[in-house]
Amino acid sequence: MLSDLHVPGNSPVHRARPGVKLALLAVFCTAVFILDDPLVTAMSGALVALGYAAAGLRPRHAWTSLRPALWPLVIVFLAQLVLADAGTAMFVTGRFAVLILAASLLTLTTRAVDLTDSLRVGLERLSPRIPADRIALAVSLCLRFIPLVRTVLEDIRRAQWSRGLERRPLALLVPLIVRTLRTADEMAEAIEARSVE
């Protein structure tokens, strides 16, 4: 349930340091936006395609990253078609596609764990005042909580279903929040009792 979107591989793109990839992505996306030019967008599209090829990714992977954004993109395309012309519509929509694909290249070739690690190191280096260990605690707690909250939600849904209340959002949300808050409180006490603090 909690798998990330990473596609395993051993290409240079996979092996590059996550921090480097993040920085490159930031520069790339800023450049595409600032230069604001169809030719630049087309060229950067080719660059992204090259990146996918170098990472050994198939068009199918590009499609899975683009598909969730499909409807907003269609709407933007239609809006531009009405407000401007076909050329502008292609340019604006194409630019979105290039940016989304570039950002997805990072996600597809980098494990979430590695990204978190390099983020933590980067934050520590940025300023010693940033509580990196607390951020790490929050991230790992959240990863633990996600399946837990889903299980509790399923339990409550079954219970309320037997009472005929499963369509009432309040009858699901209030018990969900109160029950998980209680669990969270117990967990906080346990963490403090073990002096992880």
Partner: peptide
């Protein structure tokens, strides 16, 4: 506090 961090993590999970 630790409690705050746990609550933050919980609501991100919610």
């Amino acid at each position: 506090t630790t409690r705050d961090i746990v609550f933050i993590a919980l609501f991100a999970a919610i």
